[in-house]
Amino acid sequence: MSVRLKFTLSYVGFLMIAGALLLAAVWAFLLRGRSNGLHVPDLSDFRRAFDPSNFGPTVFVPAAILVLGFLLVFGLVGGWILAGRMLVPLTRITDATRMAARGSLSHRIELEGRKDEFRELADAFDGMLARLEAHVAEQQRFAANASHELRTPLAIMQTMLDVARNDPSRQGNEFDERLRVVNARAIDLTEALLLLSRTDRRSFAREDVDLSLIAEEATETLLPLAEKHGVVIETIGDITPTIGSHALLLQLTTNLVHNAIVHNLPENGTVEVRTTVGSQAAVLTVENTGEQLSPHVVSTFTEPFQRGTERVRSDHVGAGLGLAIAESITQAHEGTLSLTPRADGGLRVTVRLPATARLAA
């Protein structure tokens, strides 16, 4: 039984009781002065009920005040008790909301009873609290990892600067080059964190874009890196329209292609970048050859700072944020990103983005 129906039946019941009491009081006044027992009043009784002589202050007014006062008290007390019983679930929801506002996200309402509007609201609120708790925990882990990753290159830089300052006979070129590499890593990491924060806030303009052109632009930019690693890139796809930020989608594609290049076979590796029009979606797929990967290891690749210990390491492994940024950009565009290990070794990354009106048609 829904809350709305419960309220309706409750107040109808009270109205029926109040009406019965009122009719009983009127009946008593209508029958006042008759010598016989109870009977159905006729027209003369109604006329007598409105006779001014029957409404004297010493006859009708005290009785009317008494009856109305009783009805008022009865209605207030009964309505207060019924409303309180009906609104107990809402009180629990309010208490849980206050606890969440104070930072306690582990509390759950867990409202029992039949499924009604309050039960649905409580279940939805519990689900929201669970997602918020998981998100906050993830952000805390992210902040801790980010602090650790930022602290390491900065500490190394400080140590190298101290050594360089205390060693007048040093060879400046060697130290300068090492400082440049460490500093570049810190800058890249900071920019990646800022980009990740931007996509989480979803503060970007959306426009019609073509994924196939973005894929071509990304592969052309990374072609020198692919040649250096001995990796062949193949781009396949027709016009694949979607809607979003051109800069962010380019960053997403670049991250995926870069990841496919640096985590590939030592030689004779391949990368395939394919854009297709799926069912109500624009699909970007990046496949690369490489070592055999287990599904468990692949499931961790989108976590920040996870580089994959079983993957081929190189001097271009980055900060471990490439796939995390790609997933964040995908979610900001209301899409999905999935990672699948290839049977022959390597990785397949599939990005599904919402279709534009033209693609849906």
Rank of each mutant, 00 (worst) to 15 (best):
V67M: 11
V67L: 10
L68G: 10
G69V: 07
F70Q: 05
L71W: 02
L71F: 07
L72I: 13
L72C: 11
V73T: 07
V73S: 02
V77F: 04
V77A: 06
G78N: 02
W80N: 03
W80E: 05
I81H: 04
I81E: 03
G84L: 04
G84E: 03
R85A: 04
M86W: 11
L87W: 04
L87Q: 07
V88S: 03
V88Q: 04
L90W: 08
T91V: 09
R92A: 06
R92F: 02
I93N: 00
T94G: 09
D95I: 07
D95E: 13
D95F: 04
D95T: 11
A96D: 02
A96K: 00
R98G: 08
R98E: 10
R98S: 09
A100F: 01
A101E: 06
G103P: 01
G103C: 00
G103Y: 00
G103D: 00
S104E: 12
S106P: 06
S106E: 11
H107W: 04
H107V: 12
R108D: 03
R108S: 05
R108L: 01
R108P: 04
R108E: 05
I109Q: 03
E110Q: 11
L111Q: 02
E112N: 14
E112G: 15
G113R: 05
R114I: 13
D116I: 01
D116N: 02
E117L: 03
E117C: 02
R119Q: 12
L121A: 10
A122T: 02
A124P: 03
F125T: 01
D126L: 01
D126G: 02
G127P: 06
G127L: 02
M128K: 12
L129V: 07
E133R: 02
E133I: 01
H135R: 15
V136I: 05
V136D: 10
V136T: 08
V136C: 06
V136R: 15
A137R: 07
E138S: 11
E138K: 11
E138M: 09
E138L: 11
Q139I: 08
Q139H: 09
Q140G: 12
Q140V: 08
F142H: 12
F142L: 14
A143E: 09
A143C: 03
A144V: 04
N145T: 10
N145I: 11
A146G: 04
A146P: 00
A146M: 06
H148K: 13
L150K: 11
R151C: 09
R151T: 11
T152H: 13
T152V: 14
T152N: 12
L154D: 05
A155S: 11
I156E: 10
M157Y: 03
T159V: 15
M160Y: 14
M160P: 10
M160I: 15
L161F: 12
D162M: 15
V163Q: 13
A164Q: 14
N166D: 14
D167P: 08
D167R: 13
Q171M: 09
G172E: 11
N173K: 12
N173F: 15
F175N: 13
D176G: 15
E177I: 09
E177W: 12
E177H: 13
R180F: 14
V181C: 05
V181I: 14
V182P: 03
V182C: 08
N183G: 13
N183L: 14
A184G: 10
